[in-house]
Nucleic acid binder design. Structure first.
Length: 378
DNA sequence: CAGACGTGGCC
DNA sequence: TGGCCAAGTCT
């Protein structure tokens, strides 16, 4: 069923377009949420919000956004910050390359464009971390330019309005939806129209059980008419996360704990964490792989007991983590990417959630737990 | 193009 | 409870 459908849609007629524009915008004017990035049209504020909102829910973003904007109210202040501070402000939000790319891009804006986000499609699109959606959002919302901003909501709403079975996970589909969107955007309120489309997708035209009865454009919706709204949009299934065993070390020396920065590329790239190795199922001693690896780095470990076990799911990996404590007996030269840190200072570091969980487990014995649920490990 | 890239919430 | 989803971009 579904899958491919590259029929070109007949252009909607003008009366239809006018009706949909008015109904959607009237609905938006009455129902738009009062979100922190809607206080004004400062392009920098819009930009930051759009980056945070990538693949992330509004409710999750709000507190991060408020904190981020109070720390870095202007492009100049963000550009002047250390990357560590920026990452710390992003801690727990995920997709950390967004923060690095934003930081890189805002420095570019300060150096090249005098601290003003350029009002130009080519220039905005060249900024790191700004793809076709985000460029369209910034330009339409902040600068009132009539350009498409097609995100997951817009894919869903348009696929339903026009009963389009194009697979929205294919990049070729984006062009088609952008051209369709372009026909609909009114010259006078492009930013509001794009936001209204997304707002409708978030509040009414939801992925599961859409509230069609409350939809301002239900009469214009072909999927609703045909009763196929639940089947749209068509998207191919992602692959389930690959299970991996990992060992984290809670390695102590005097009253300090060893932190290690992860390699710059890849999963949690460049983030601080506990010493980590991939472990093998047949490993005789818990933490043996960790001890062996550190031996080659010139640090002799005495292993203690297993502090606990935890499971953490990423988009494409599922980590089954064994947290092992150990003590540093002797140390030659500590690798550049490592630091001994007082327990109370660990919170100064930006740790991804999987490491936060492990640290909490190590510091708070009641949280310690053993055994993965269901023993579903492999 | 397909896969990498985090996290939390919902049913 | 496991699987899917959420205002995508980069390689």
């Amino acid at each position: 069923m579904g899958g491919k459908d590259h029929r070109s849609i007949q252009a909607p007629d003008d009366d239809w377009i006018q009706a949909v524009r008015k109904k959607l915008l009237d609905w938006y004017d009455q129902n738009r949420r009062d979100l922190p990035w809607r206080k004004n049209k400062d392009p920098y504020r819009i930009w930051v919000s759009e980056i945070m909102l990538q693949q992330t829910r509004v409710d999750t973003v709000i507190p991060y956004y408020e904190r981020f904007m109070s720390l870095f109210p202007t492009p100049g202040e963000l550009a002047a910050a250390d990357e560590e501070e920026v990452i710390k402000a992003w801690e727990g939000l995920g997709y950390y390359s967004r923060a690095r790319n934003l930081h890189t891009a805002v420095k570019e804006v300060v150096e090249t464009y005098g601290g003003v986000v350029p009002d130009d499609p080519e220039a905005v699109s060249r900024l790191k971390g700004v793809g076709p959606y985000t460029a369209g959002a910034i330009l339409s919302i902040a600068y009132n330019r009539p350009v498409p901003a097609v995100d997951g909501n817009v894919f869903r709403v348009l696929s339903r309005w026009f009963a389009l079975r194009d697979d929205v996970t294919r990049s070729s589909t984006r062009r088609k939806f952008e051209e369709l969107d372009r026909l609909l955007i009114p010259e006078d309120r492009p930013g509001d129209f794009n936001q209204a489309l997304m707002e409708l997708g978030a509040l009414i035209c939801t992925p599961v059980s859409p509230a069609c009865e409350g939809c301002p454009v239900q009469g214009e919706c072909r999927a609703r008419h045909e009763g196929i709204q639940a089947e749209l949009p068509v998207k191919t299934r992602g692959k389930p996360p690959v299970p991996v065993r990992m060992t984290f070390g809670w390695i102590m020396k005097d009253s300090r704990v060893l932190l290690q920065r992860r390699p710059p590329e890849g999963l949690l790239g460049g983030m601080w964490g506990l010493p980590t190795v991939e472990s093998l199922p047949e490993e005789p001693v818990p933490g043996g792989a960790l001890r062996d690896q550190w031996a080659t780095l010139g640090l002799k470990l005495e292993l203690g007991t297993v502090v606990g076990e935890l499971e953490h799911v990423f988009s494409h990996r599922r980590w089954f983590v064994t947290l092992v404590e150990g003590w540093c007996l002797s140390e030659e030269n500590l690798p550049e990417n490592c630091r001994w840190v007082e327990e109370k200072d660990i919170e100064q570091y930006a740790l991804p959630n999987v490491y936060r969980k492990a640290v909490r487990m190590a510091l708070d014995p009641p949280l310690r737990s053993h055994g993965f649920r269901q023993g579903r490990l492999f």
